[in-house]
């Protein structure tokens, strides 16, 4: 647990991810739908950023752009790593593979040798406290355990980078799409704590999408509020050094309500 964050370091390092004036329009002409417009976002290496927004805030589009699965209509997307890891709401594990082989999958796709990938996978399973469950298949694990296997798999994916150089810790990026939304409240609470611990231990930059203000405030160093239809950044809160997170939760909730309310008026 030596990976404390040194935010005073102001050297012009390359951000883990940077979006500048990004817009994304689907379709053309009258039927065109603007999913994102004028999005500026910068994620520092090792930073934990929560994107908060209601339905239609374009979070899936935004994550697809960051993951390199889609291109923006306008603006630029610059991501340090060529292969950011993605974690979904569902664990999305391959049901016929054991836990350890699921974690190995991104390494296997990247052509890492058998013994190396087994070693990495076992280390990561230990990190998410699943050593001893390596040989179990997904259906033999609980929902929370499956999501931790998925976390370990995403972490394995962050170790893969064909461009190397930037693949040093600083370039690592993990995109999380409401990963705890489908879990029960107790499990979610425990896993939030686990994610925080794992993030500190690995120093990976995280972009975490959520609908839950409390989750965003608990986990994020920075909370970015997005509007809906089209999605754009409304406001940001820097949480480092914030003592009263409860008061901030109230404040952010008020803002979120305001954003949602404008849609009722417009309709």
């Amino acid at each position: 647990m030596t990976a404390t964050l040194d935010r005073t370091q102001v050297a012009p390092t390359r951000p883990a991810a940077q979006l500048t004036g990004v817009a994304k329009v689907f379709g053309t002409g009258a039927g065109a739908v603007t999913a994102l417009t004028g999005v500026d976002l910068r994620v520092e290496p090792g930073e934990f950023v929560c994107l908060l927004g209601a339905s239609g805030c374009g979070k899936t589009t935004l994550l697809n752009l960051l993951a390199g699965l889609d291109r923006p209509t306008r603006g630029t997307v610059d991501v340090a790593t060529d292969r950011p890891a993605v974690m979904f709401q569902e664990p999305a594990l391959l049901p016929w593979l054991t836990a350890v082989r699921n974690v190995e999958l991104p390494l296997r796709l990247a052509g890492v040798g058998r013994s190396n990938r087994r070693g990495t996978a076992n280390e990561l399973l230990e990190l998410v406290r699943l050593d001893g469950q390596a040989r179990k298949r997904p259906h033999e694990l609980s929902g929370g355990m499956r999501q931790r296997v998925a976390l370990a798999r995403a972490l394995a994916a962050t170790t893969v980078d064909t461009t190397s150089g930037d693949a040093e810790k600083g370039g690592r990026l993990m995109l999380m799409d409401e990963p705890f939304a489908a879990l029960d409240a107790i499990t979610r609470d425990v896993l939030q704590g686990e994610l925080e611990r794992v993030w500190r231990a690995t120093g990976t930059a995280v972009v975490f999408v959520t609908h839950d203000v409390r989750e965003a405030v608990r986990l994020g160093q920075r909370v970015v509020l997005l509007s809906s239809r089209p999605g754009t950044v409304v406001r940001e809160w820097d949480l480092t050094g914030t003592a009263d997170r409860r008061a901030l939760t109230g404040e952010i909730t008020d803002h979120l309500r305001e954003v949602i309310s404008t849609h009722g008026r417009a309709a």
Partner: peptide, 10 residues
């Protein structure tokens, strides 16, 4: 979703 898993892993 399994196809998407493959996509995001390149």
């Amino acid at each position: 979703i399994l196809g998407r898993v493959g996509d995001v892993m390149g």
